[in-house]
Amino acid sequence: MAGQFPEWIRRTWGSGSDFGVTRGILDGLQLHTVCQSARCPNIGECWRRRTATIMVLGNVCTRKCAFCGVRSAQSGQTLRAPDPEEPGRVAEAVRRLELRHAVVTSVTRDDLADGGSGHFAATVETIRAVNPGCTVEVLTPDFQGSRAAVETVMAAGPDVFGHNIETVERLYPVLRSPAHDYGRSLAVLKSAAAMAAASGGRTAVKSALMVGHGETPDEVRATLAGLLEAGCVAVCIGQYLRPGKAEREVAEFVTPEQFAAYERMAYAMGFAFAVAGPFVRSSYRAEELVNALKARH
């Protein structure tokens, strides 16, 4: 096992009293996190800093992508209906964690008529009601391309609307479940950006992608160009790391120098905020993005 990872793929195992406090708050409120479900290597750092990305609508996904460690539904399995109490528990977790910026994501819920968009909106509104001044970021599924679902979320006025393109177009067939579509994800971002512009530009639109699946820098550039054209102002690029033996192997560990080059490229192309690095995740240090965007106004 030694030498399996380059020296820059090294994190701290979550421990210590602050980690325990975060865990206690989230467990106590029966909330799921993508930190745990995706086996995120940043959990030690983030939870010790008392930040976490809460995952609503359960911890079972109706799709299965080859890179993702989140559990997927068995065929014929009925998932629980959205818990109307969950937005309140999320808001309470935000209060107890004293978050100034809350990031909320979900599994994909193709079984729900609105894709869970109403639950997202209720969560944004409840977080705000309980935590005045707290900024809220959503990281949504594609809602099967439903413009109405995007509209539902946008009507709640999140500070950041995130939807991850995840990978370059060529790798969609091998990495993503058949229900995903590259163009449709771009269309979701485009809808959100158009709605944000129409309502005065309060919401920043953001996306993220993984590298290390064998994509080329030219393909990354083309993906960034597509995101920009869709209206994204912020992008995150991080290394794919395999959650477990069931998921696809890492094709390549992208060097820190190449990440730095990607970040420069994104800024040069016109993104207002870009961050690239081995452990960058769409929600990792997300507060910095909001602060950076606010500073521009």
Binding site: Q4, F5, I9, R11, P41
Partner: peptide, 11 residues
């Protein structure tokens, strides 16, 4: 330590 995902130091 290493997992499938990364190397981790245990403080």
């Amino acid at each position: 330590m290493t997992t499938d995902k990364a190397a981790f130091s245990v403080p």
